[in-house]
């Protein structure tokens, strides 16, 4: 797979490029073009868009959230419909579309980047950026413990439900936050203390550097790609800033 051959730094440059476009472009057509490019990149590098299928629902929900906000708060354009204090203006829909496109690009690019490499590769990338290994290795720790803690939170909720805690409606859920959150917090603090002790007793932080079982080696095409992407950002910035000078 072509994606695996790329250095994480190249992927990071791509991610920054996508974020830059998502935040700087304002027209729906341009944002749409960037999104298509983003998707095409996935298709070319991974050979399928299977990964993105599941995200369609998430994007729809995200869009719904933006639409609701726009319908309530947008005051631009012509008043189309009014019901009490609720007013819907003509600009609500175009603004929703660009909003959805921007957040979708950010989301897709984030997904692309964070699923494109292993935790170990991200750690090695941070080390190449001169981040001390004691900090860089926390990436792997986060990936390892996220699912464990999620499962644990479900067990804690179960435990409190058997003691009579109700979770039947929103009000119950709000009332249940503290009795479920506090054991979760105490347990997490206890767990993190144990993990830290286990790590220290295995020599974590003993010296400034350590041996990793793999290394990153930047290739010529990575350098070329990173340079190209940085140049695109630079040209775009110059193009935008020139009229201001």
């Amino acid at each position: 797979m072509a994606l695996a051959k790329l250095d994480p730094r190249t992927k990071l440059a791509w991610y920054i490029l996508m974020l830059y476009f998502a935040l700087s472009l304002q027209s729906a057509a341009r944002l749409g073009f960037v999104l298509v490019v983003c998707l095409l990149a996935s298709l070319i590098l991974t050979g399928s868009l299977k990964l993105h299928k599941v995200m369609v629902v998430i994007v729809l929900l995200l869009g719904l959230q933006i639409l609701v906000v726009q319908l309530i708060f947008c005051r631009q354009g012509v008043l189309l419909w009014q019901w009490g204090i609720l007013k819907i203006y003509s600009e609500a829909l175009p603004l929703t579309i660009t909003g959805i496109l921007k957040s979708t690009i950010i989301f897709y690019a984030s997904m692309q980047f964070f699923t494109s490499a292993s935790a170990q590769e991200f750690t090695l990338m941070l080390i190449k950026f001169k981040i001390p290994y004691r900090f860089a290795m926390l990436v792997g720790l986060a990936v390892r413990f996220l699912p464990l803690l999620k499962t644990e939170y479900v067990s804690i909720i179960d435990s409190q439900r058997t003691r009579g805690l109700k979770m039947e409606n929103v009000w119950d859920e709000i009332k249940a936050i503290l009795p479920t959150f506090l054991p979760f917090l105490y347990r997490a603090v206890r767990r993190s203390t144990e993990i830290a002790l286990a790590m220290e007793l295995k020599g974590y932080g003993r010296s400034a550097s350590r041996t990793f079982s793999s290394d990153l080696e930047i290739k010529g095409y990575d350098v070329a790609l990173i340079t190209m992407m940085l140049l695109v950002i630079c040209f775009s910035l110059v193009y935008r800033l020139l009229p201001l000078l």
Binding site: Q120, R210, S213
Partner: peptide, 15 residues
């Protein structure tokens, strides 16, 4: 995340 890396964790710290 994997068994090999975990067993190698302490050894890696020794450099």
């Amino acid at each position: 995340l994997d068994v090999y890396e975990d067993v190698a964790f302490g050894l890696g710290n020794l450099g």
